[in-house]
Computed example of a mutant assay.
Amino acid sequence: MNIDLTGKTALVTGSTKGIGLASAKGLAESGARVVLNGRTQVAVDAAIADLLGALPKAQVSGIAADIGTAQGCASIVAALPQCDILVNNAGIFGPQDFFETPDSVWQTFYDVNVMSGVRLSRAYLPGMQARGWGRVVFLSSESAFNIPPDMIHYGMTKTAVTALARGLAKRMAGTGITVNSVLPGPTLSEGVAAMLGDAAREAGKSVEEAGRDFIAAHRPSSILRRLARVDEVANMIVYACSPQASATTGAALRVDGGVVDSL
């Protein structure tokens, strides 16, 4: 399958590392002009250099903005008034017991993980509709269905994101625009690698081996039996953004390694 996104502009939020950067690389490799986003200019510049190192002919730029605020989202739209592809990837996670999670943490998770996608979709979808083509992808998680007891605040936001994508797909029915969510399972991003690093060193194991131990202990329903790679998740995102995915909309596309025990 040859995915050709030549002439399309793609904005990927939270794309200075991890799944976001891998998705940006995949979109750029398919010919899209890619706009990266991160909270700091230093991080954005480093990600641009990384992407150009892998794809010297890529069309890539970046916008430094905190998408967890209305002002940050507005600054992105001001710098990039329209796009053809919007990947709402930016998100935060972290374990915290329900009874020790204050309102401020709940609000921060909701603002970053949910409201960023609300604000940017509201800004960009009308232009996509006027042009008769568009792709919007929300990064959800297997935690949307498999709510972690130690991250209820996180799981709730991912359930909300999945519902948001489904609702927007119905709202944009018949317009040539597709809206989907992608649900990764445990993935070997930089953050997860750092989390597993200490345990791996203490046990004299590689990070990959520590990842398999983590899956066995914390996601025993996994069929894959290992952490996914960021590029494996990015492949689904790139496909969902492609012309070939024209009949895929309103879907919760799982890249969870079979963690969610459901048909």
Rank of each mutant, 00 (worst) to 15 (best):
T108R: 12
Q129P: 01
R171D: 15
L183M: 14
A203D: 12
I48S: 01
G197I: 09
S246E: 04
S222G: 09
G258S: 01
E190Y: 06
G7F: 13
F98D: 11
W106H: 04
V137G: 03
L21G: 02
A193F: 00
A169E: 02
I67N: 13
Y239S: 03
V112C: 14
L21H: 09
M128S: 10
R226H: 03
L51Y: 08
E142C: 11
A79K: 07
Q96H: 08
N235W: 12
A217Q: 00
T13V: 06
L36T: 14
L51Q: 06
T16L: 14
N235G: 15
V44N: 05
Y154A: 02
G167W: 01
Q41D: 15
P220K: 09
A194D: 10
S121A: 14
A165C: 06
D198W: 01
V137C: 06
P220T: 12
P95H: 07
G258R: 06
G185D: 03
M1R: 09
H153I: 13
A160P: 05
I63Y: 10
I3P: 05
P95C: 03
S221Y: 07
A144C: 02
T187K: 15
A58Y: 06
V182N: 03
L120Y: 11
P95E: 08
R201M: 13
M172D: 00
L253N: 04
V12Q: 05
D97F: 12
L139G: 07
S206P: 00
G68T: 13
F99T: 13
I215R: 03
L52I: 14
